[in-house]
Amino acid sequence: MTSPTTGSAAKRVDRDSALPLWAQVLADLRRRLTDDEFTDAFPGELALVDEYRVSRHTVREALRRLRAEGLVVAARGRPPRLAGTMEIEQPVGALYSLFASVEAAGLRQRSVVRTLDVRADGVVAVRLGLEESTPLLYLERVRLAGEEPLAVDRVWLPARVAAPLLSADFTHTALYTELSRRCGVSLTKGAEHIRAVVPTPAERTLLGIDDRVAAFAIDRLGEHRGEPVEWRHTLVRGDRFAVTADFTARTGYRLDVAGTLPGPRARLHAAARRETR
Rank of each mutant, 00 (worst) to 15 (best):
A162D: 07
R119T: 14
L206A: 11
L255W: 09
E178K: 07
R232G: 04
V185N: 01
Y96H: 14
R76L: 11
R60Q: 15
R143L: 12
F247P: 01
A125Q: 04
S97M: 07
P228H: 02
L46R: 14
Q109E: 13
P199T: 11
P149E: 10
H224K: 01
D246I: 02
A214C: 04
E227G: 02
E178V: 01
R56M: 09
S8P: 00
A41S: 14
P80V: 10
R15H: 13
A272Q: 10
R160M: 03
A217F: 04
K11T: 12
G7S: 09
R254I: 11
R267G: 12
R154P: 03
H269F: 12
V13Y: 10
D210F: 05
Q24F: 10
T188R: 04
G226D: 01
L157W: 07
R53P: 00
T200G: 07
R141K: 15
R254Q: 12
R30Q: 15
L116R: 01
G252M: 03
L98S: 08
T173H: 06
C183R: 00
S186M: 07
L221W: 02
A270D: 14
L207D: 05
H269V: 12
T200M: 04
R53A: 14
A100H: 14
V197L: 03
G70C: 11
R60E: 14
R250H: 10
V236L: 05
V185R: 07
T205S: 13
D211V: 02
